[in-house]
């Protein structure tokens, strides 16, 4: 398992940890059934606060990537394709919601948004 944290990143630290672990679960680097390091160990090793790693793990848990087993720690759950698709769908929707909110905020109309989406899609 590899976790690299950047202080320059736009993402908060907990989200960076989440992303790193999630990506490694999805691409199979961390196979299902793996016991993840404890929240406190991860915090010490990466030099971030316990609250930060706790948040990362609880987010991963609520999204179905890991499960915490009392007394044992956090275990990587199997990622079946259908579930995975569903998960991605949920995340894409979330991201789009943010994008649309930002667009509304700046007074962008639907047409402009669509063309922006097209340009992103094609790039």
């Amino acid at each position: 398992m590899k976790i690299i944290i950047s202080s320059q990143s736009e993402l908060p630290i907990y989200a960076q940890i989440e992303e790193e672990i999630k990506n490694q679960i999805l691409d199979g680097t961390i196979p299902e059934g793996t016991l993840l390091p404890s929240i406190r160990k991860l915090a010490r090793e990466t030099g971030v606060s316990v609250i930060t790693t706790t948040r990362a793990y609880s987010d991963l848990e609520s999204r179905g990537y890991i499960a915490s087993q009392p007394g044992r720690g956090s275990i990587v759950l199997p990622q079946d394709n259908k579930l995975l698709r569903e998960q991605y769908r949920k995340e894409i929707k979330e991201d789009l919601t943010h994008a649309v909110a930002a667009a509304r905020q700046t007074g962008m109309d639907r047409q402009e948004f669509d063309s922006l989406l097209d340009s992103v899609w094609d790039s």
Binding site: I13, R40, R44, V48, S49, V50
Partner: peptide, 26 residues
């Protein structure tokens, strides 16, 4: 960080400069 790792110890530190401790503070 090692000191608090077992979950049974705590730290209170005062500072006028958070630079060092920004990452590890809860």
């Amino acid at each position: 960080q090692e000191y608090v790792e077992d979950g049974n110890h705590s730290i209170l530190f005062s500072t006028h400069n958070m630079e060092d401790l920004q990452d590890i503070a809860d």
